[in-house]
Design a protein around this nucleic acid. Sequence first.
RNA 1: GGCGGCGUACCCAAGUGGCCAAGGGAGAGGUCUGCAAAACCUCCAUUCAGCGGUUCGAAUCCGCUCGCCGCCUCCA
Length: 476
Amino acid sequence: MRPFFIYNTLSRKVEEFIPLKPGVVTYYSCGPTVYLPQHLGNMRSYLFTDTLKRTLRLNGYEVRHVMNITDVGHMTSDQDGGEDKIEKTARAEGRSPKEVADYYTGLFIRNIELLRIEKPTVPPGQFCRATEHVPDMIALIGRILDRGYAYVAPSGVYFDVEKWRGANRMGRLSRQSLEEQFSEQRLEHASDKRSKHDFALWVLNQPHHLMQWDSPWGRGYPGWHIECSAMSMKYLGETLDIHSGGLDHVPIHHENEIAQSESATGKPFVRYFVHNAFLVGMEGVKISKSAGRFPVLADLAAAGIDPMAFRLFCFGAKYRSELAFSLDAVRAAQTNLDYIREFARGVPESIAHSPDSDWVESWFDRFHEAVNNDLNTPQALAVVLDLIGEAYRRGDKRIWNAMRRIDTVLGLDLESVRQQAASAILPPEIESLRAQRDEARKRKDFARSDALRSELQSRGYEVRDTPQGTLLHRRG
RNA sequence: GGCGGCGUACCCAAGUGGCCAAGGGAGAGGUCUGCAAAACCUCCAUUCAGCGGUUCGAAUCCGCUCGCCGCCUCCA
């Protein structure tokens, strides 16, 4: 078995990955808050999650993966004040919070499907909605209170950061002390918290908030961080193998998750924390929600770019590096996609189902090694393109078994592309034009054959002359 | 103010102490072709922001300078 290496934010090192339980990986990844469309930067993050899952599976692991959908708004500020983001959108759009959440959840899932990002496996094919796990959150808050790491104040139930810091290691993920984190002290809310560092587990006495639940401490709603702890531990156990999210989650969200979870269970919460870097815009500016306008998948479609091209585009950089977004860069990926698909279309049924040539195995090994090296997808992609080039050079397309295995990681659905080309039945009138063109070419009536080519192209077909006659591919 | 990251050819981007600095896109030339298309071949950074230093040897380690960015408030 080939070792799999991954960068662990906890140690700041690339480590060999070894799961707690042989053969099974428990994995929780942070999902979206559904109050705005998910932009391409978000999609890069979920694509990273998907690649990690697929690579683990390539290595023989069963991946138990949970992903949340935050459909109860937390505050626009992590502190006491601010407005609930979902409710803000709801008011602006004149809809209920549930309508807002449902709408953007649907949009999110459609984008996930377009990018062929696999859905969570626990529960099978389901995302965990925060609103459906409020009792689990309440139970977890109860455990934290029982162990003395939280207290009830009039405005809410708060996590006692000072006490936890005394007992443990707050800041071990971000490597920042609380003083460093809050050095500017911009957060000077007059509140009933014992310390300004304390964060809400449950919010009380916010009568204007639209979404409220009963709890042992009164009517209210959960704090931002608690859902991830509650849902991950409910489905995956109290110690997770892997937890991932965007780099921005390191200092606050994940730090607080660790504190909540470990104070409740007394066990390590996560063994490998993995964080992905951002997609940045043309000026090196983060494509963030607060920046206003940001590209979404539909913008790419409008530019004639396939969602699978965006997949390839993201493979072009390591997940831990910022990736500079531009339409030109994505178009380059589209060209690569066309190249790979073109090869797939040329692999006949007989070859696809017979063993690979001997020389192919070492290429697959190189791919596997690249991807196992902290998901070095740029290198892996280079191997794939080189493998296809080698197949052309040798005139030997017996590489399809390896390509199928490679595609379990790439997720481009190449086998379908191949099969569709192999079984393509042309409409009768198109077939007739094709036959006429072959006839014209035999007679060397090139004026006629060129006219027929234009005709076919205008009907959306790529026209290519081969020794076997005119070959047609539907574009797009 | 505190913490952290980045700067590799026209563009995207691997490589983090040692064969010639991956790969792709764009560009140039060529093979093939009736012409195309597809594919293949060749060319395309003596150089890794700049300046010093460590070393037998550095894009890779250290220092300084310049430039860019993220986090510290919700954010993938």
